[in-house]
Design a protein around this nucleic acid. Structure first.
Lengths: 164, 164
DNA sequence: CCAAACAATCTCGACATCAAGATTCTTGAC
DNA sequence: GTCAAGAATCTTGATGTCGAGATTGTTTGG
């Protein structure tokens, strides 16, 4: 292994204090959690250039990648972004204020709503995506492509494991 | 690759909508973020058995693994847990209320404070650790040990990459 | 066709977090 | 010794999220 990091120190400390417990799982799982927090910060930085918050990008990008006509129900957005329905109501409200989305009635279900990306929202999210990926490729360049693919595959397996 | 997951769908959608952008970095980085959120939920579940919140465990475990006499400064706890100083003040307040820690004056620096784990706090965090690791080993069992070690190593590399 | 179960969205209050700044104390240069 | 710079902690106000429940509309079994 290369230079020790924070997680190596945490694991070493636990082994000293609790030699009766096998903490080796932390080498993978704690590292994922900590790395995710670092990635959040990096993303926040990347979006700041475009005056976007991370949560705004999360919603706008879900609409963008849905393809034309760039509209999804709040429920669908909840599923895509892993937040609660109350949170999504709040997010959509603020995105409407900023002029990035519009709320329209669902013609087929009077309970339903469609959240639609505006032209302004689309331009913004398109630019932010490019910026984000430049940063992400930079970060990921620390891994050669073969290894990156192996890691992606392992993470896919883990995701299935934790969800069941 | 095994069965496609949410990230595979997201990447495929982006490739359809933005064929001009290379989104392959998401296979690793988005998966890390999403997996971290799933892990948070799993941890929350594990701690609920012991009446602990995740943030409580984060603080108590930092104190516990520091070893005897189980005390650290707020500043040190901030560094260990990746939160701001204001957050830590609040957390320590509430842990004092629950009787899991005590605040004592630092004898060498009158600005300083030492946050000390109580016997009750120690019992609780020790039990929660065992529970947490049982769950984590279960999740990680989806990967054979060799692969897990490779992933840990790659994540260590990525952490260094994102921090610089 | 009615009632009950179900579904989609929104409302509301509690709560945890952050960022910036205030407070109190320490240290080092002169 | 004193003063300015720095350090450790706490305070405050704004913000975003969650969870539970309310509202409105749809579906289905009898």
């Amino acid at each position: 292994m290369s230079t020790p990091d924070e997680v190596d120190e945490v694991v070493a400390a636990w082994q000293r204090e609790r030699p009766d417990v096998d903490v080796s799982a932390m080498h993978v799982l704690s590292r994922i959690s900590r790395l995710a927090r670092h990635l959040d910060r990096a993303r926040k930085q990347a979006f700041a250039t475009h005056g976007l918050e991370t949560w705004e990008f999360d919603v706008l990008s879900a609409l963008r990648r849905a393809g034309k006509p760039y509209q999804l129900s709040p429920g669908r957005l909840v599923a895509e972004t892993m937040v609660t329905s109350g949170t999504m109501t709040n997010r959509v409200d603020r995105l409407v204020e900023r002029g990035f989305v519009e709320r329209r009635a669902d013609p087929d279900d009077r309970r339903g709503v469609r959240v639609c990306l505006t032209a302004s929202g689309r331009r913004t999210v398109d630019a932010a995506l490019v910026e984000l990926l430049e940063h992400e490729r930079e970060i990921l360049s620390a891994l050669d492509p073969t290894r990156a693919a192996q890691v992606a595959d392992a993470l896919r397996t883990l995701t299935r494991s934790v969800r069941s």
